[in-house]
Amino acid sequence: MKKFLIACFLFVVTVDVYATPEEDRLALREFFTQRFPDMDLNEMINGLYAFDEGAREQWLEMEDFPPYEIAIEEGEEAFNEPFANSKSYADCFENGGIGIKQNYPRFDKDSGEIITLELAINQCRTDNGEEPLPWLTGELAAISAYMAFTSRGNKMSVVIPDDPRALSAYESGKEYYYTRRGQLEFACENCHMQSAGFQLRADRLSGMLGQATHWPVYRSKWGEIGTLHKRFRECNSQVRAKPYDPQSRVYRELEYFLSFMSNDMEMNGPASRR
């Protein structure tokens, strides 16, 4: 009897405290449905432009001659250039690296680590005796942009396999998103859930849903194409918190969580933002 009661207790606690990732994702969609009942949620892959008609028009005009086009071309060239050992990126990825961005980040069961696309690109290089590339902008971002481009139209499909290490990586990323930090004491959630669609000075704030579908991004303010971890660092700095290193475990786990939240949404990278 005692055993039975304990079992009941554990069951209740588990259900109450830990929602499954899939339950989290559906709850997030429900949150935005209630906040913006008239909006098509699928529009949120376009970030702030889902909320701001004026900015959206300017953006659509810019998309006629997209500022990330050069990066896609440079990325394609770099992608096809063989390494010194005559192998190439295509040898490192499933389907020769074409149309696979929606599967990243993925959990690697050998190392127990979360592997982002950028990490996999640099691992491919070092496995083949090449130097790794800098993480935030430049050639790595361009290769990522090309790979994103070949994945356009696919649906984000990040998998959290039945492995406690994968679930724990997801939970850490989630906790990070909801934890306040920095001198201004803001969590990602404060800006991208509670305040999505509102304006911080002239910046309209995007919502959490769809935030991961369109990377890397050419940002007018940067004047170049940059990776998601560059954006994480900027959002940390904005609240006067110390940014983490790109591809640090914290950021990879954050990306894992954030990407899972965008599951089933259309891949539309690379993108441009003001």
């Binding site: 305040s195 304006q199 000075r201 002239a202």
Partner: peptide, 16 residues
């Protein structure tokens, strides 16, 4: 404060 609040006389005030 103007990043988030309208204040009379301020430009580009937020509505956070």
């Amino acid at each position: 404060c103007l990043a988030c609040h309208y204040v009379e006389g301020g430009e580009l005030t937020g509505n956070y």
